[in-house]
């Protein structure tokens, strides 16, 4: 834990009435892939943006490379950004359509004053090769590329400053399976080659299982379970995690699917957030919110039932 690259604790963010993220905490080691799964509106994207301080946290500590980003000055934060980059879901919207691929990939280097223009141009060539795009792509525009290729461009751009952490928010959700596999392979290769840590967000449980070392399961803004991937997939401890895993395609379904809809984040129940849909909810769940507690080394669950 001492050489953690990113250590997040008590992270919260509210947009007016909406408690998008509440008391989220996790740790990412160097070179590790940490996954966040959860359904729509559970606060995955908000957590990702908070980690990079793209949105200001309401509360919480974000310790990145030993410094607390939440209290860093604007200028110091700007300099620190060099070591963390982001990839978005939408390969169509996240690239400025009026810039050439070369300009797009060189931009982060310019922002952080890395190399001179000759050096930067050489590096663009290197990065293009690294993400498997032809050298000729350099002078073309994003709209001339397919979804998968655009995601490669976004990855090259993220790699340009040689970051230690890449936050990828649903990077393959908009892609077809065969193209998704290409992009996932690329991410794995790059990660090994550069020793990158990856915060990988997805709602596709198969993809998360494939990519991640450790995962956090989010529900309505809170982390209900966090731990090693293998442990959680083999033996989920939180009733929500269990239901989620059983809902995934390709997995034999044991229980009935969860009843009811996800409550609105603007109108949270008291007690446990999951009680309204939990097949095993009891008295205590209605008035007392369960605190996360360790059920095994580095495996924490926020459920009253997990206490024994």
């Amino acid at each position: 834990m001492t050489d953690a690259l990113l250590d997040v604790a008590g992270l919260s963010k509210s947009f007016h009435q909406v408690h998008a993220v509440r008391d989220v905490g996790f740790t990412i080691g160097r070179g590790e892939t940490f996954g966040i799964v959860g359904e729509s509106g559970s606060g995955k994207s908000t957590t990702a943006r908070l980690v990079l301080r793209l949105v200001e946290p309401t509360r919480g500590v974000i310790r990145f490379r030993g410094q607390d980003l939440a209290t860093l000055s604007k200028e110091a934060l700007r300099r620190e950004r060099r070591h963390m980059q982001m990839i978005f879901q939408d390969p169509f919207g996240s690239l400025n359509g009026r810039m050439t691929i070369e300009q797009l990939i060189a931009e982060p280097m310019e922002v952080h004053h890395i190399g001179d223009s000759v050096e930067r141009r050489r590096r663009v060539g290197q990065l293009l090769a690294e993400v498997g795009l032809p050298e000729a792509a350099r002078h073309r525009f994003p709209h001339e590329f397919s979804g998968g290729q655009r995601q490669r461009i976004a990855i090259a751009r993220a790699l340009a400053t040689e970051p230690q952490l890449i936050v990828a928010d649903e990077p393959v959700s908009a892609l077809d399976v065969s193209v998704q596999a290409q992009v996932l392979n690329l991410l794995l290769d790059l990660q090994q080659r550069h020793g990158l840590a990856l915060l990988f967000i997805s709602h596709d449980l198969r993809v998360v299982e494939f990519m991640c070392d450790r995962i956090a399961v989010m529900y309505l803004g809170t982390v209900v379970e966090e731990g090693p991937k293998a442990e959680i997939y083999a033996e989920p401890r939180h009733p929500y995690t269990r239901a989620l895993l059983e809902s995934a395609p390709g997995r034999a379904r044991k229980g009935a699917p969860l009843k009811g809809d996800i409550p609105s984040a603007a109108n949270l129940p008291t007690g446990c957030v999951f009680q309204s849909r939990c097949p095993r909810a009891f008295d205590r769940c209605t008035h007392e919110a369960p605190q996360p507690r360790a059920v095994a080394p580095s495996h924490r669950v926020a459920c009253h039932l997990a206490e024994e």
Binding site: V177, A181, L188, V207, F210, M211
Partner: peptide, 17 residues
């Protein structure tokens, strides 16, 4: 298509796109 689907157990190996 089938080979491109990530599967349990083969984690950290390469997918075959």
């Amino acid at each position: 298509l089938v080979d491109a689907i990530p599967h349990a157990g083969e984690a950290r190996a390469r997918l075959s796109p």
